[in-house]
């Protein structure tokens, strides 16, 4: 079956969300949002997706603090974060490059990362631009650290990092990423060339598991329309939605 890169990524993320019951998706995250909706659709009601900005896929009604309160209670299983910079220990920077507070480049800000990275067990880092500008040896500003000392209460943290080239899995014991799969046509050398941090990899690195055909059908027939409520341009341009 032929499939697009978006369908591959959506299905790869959906596999990581296996078993999650409460999946929250933040701002500007159409591919993670599609994956969350896909998991919701195939879970027979067991999984609930919360898409920020959606009027339909939103189980909350008590205002802005509610998502964070639920996460603090341990009742949000998965969330997504990006980063202007991400380093090899899983530290993320959503604030600025250069020397804070007089930066070279200012990003929007940390949003909920400084909290949700600690409280949500399965945080999936999603950043399509795979470059040395983004994936750096050490972030210039830590919006949220990848790991914490043992005396810090921390049920949450990074689970995986997904880019336009590959998928890394985060090793919580070693505080390092391990290459888990390459996207079609991508080589290990290409990942090395575009990554500023050291990472682990097995002797034989394989491709990312291709999407399940029935799930691709579901993305095309249902999920594209569902995500279009929040991200119409993405649904039209990248999922071929023509509703």
């Amino acid at each position: 079956m032929e499939y697009t890169r978006e369908e591959l990524l959506i299905c790869a993320i959906a596999r990581m969300l296996d078993g999650c019951r409460n999946i929250a998706v933040g701002t500007a995250s159409p591919i993670p949002g599609s994956a969350a909706l896909l998991v919701q659709a195939i879970s027979n009601g067991a999984a609930k997706a919360s898409i920020l900005g959606s009027n339909i896929h939103n189980p909350f009604n008590d205002g802005g603090p509610e998502l964070f309160d639920r996460a603090g209670q341990g009742r949000v299983d998965a969330f997504f974060l990006g980063g202007g910079q991400i380093d090899g220990e899983g530290n993320i920077n959503l604030v600025s490059t250069g020397h804070y507070p007089e930066p070279d480049t200012r990003f929007p800000g940390s949003f909920g990362s400084g909290y949700l990275y600690f409280t949500v067990p399965r945080v999936i880092l999603f950043r399509e631009e795979h470059s040395r500008r983004v994936f750096v040896k050490k972030v210039d500003f830590i919006s949220a650290p990848g790991w914490s000392p043992p005396d810090v209460y921390r049920p949450g943290g990074p689970y995986a990092l997904i880019t336009s080239l590959c998928i890394f899995i985060y090793d919580k014991k070693r505080h390092r990423f391990r290459l888990d799969g390459l996207l079609p046509g991508v080589t290990l050398e290409e990942v090395h060339d575009n990554t500023g941090f050291d990472f682990d990899y097995p002797d034989h690195i394989g491709p990312v598991v291709p999407p399940e055909p029935d799930r691709v059908d579901l993305i095309r027939s249902r999920i594209a329309g569902e995500i279009a409520e929040t991200y119409p341009k993405f649904a039209r341009d990248r999922l071929g939605w023509n509703g």
Partner: peptide
């Protein structure tokens, strides 16, 4: 509040 520890948000 939980979280925030070890961040440069807190450091600043």
């Amino acid at each position: 509040l939980r979280g925030i520890l070890g961040s440069d948000i807190l450091a600043n």
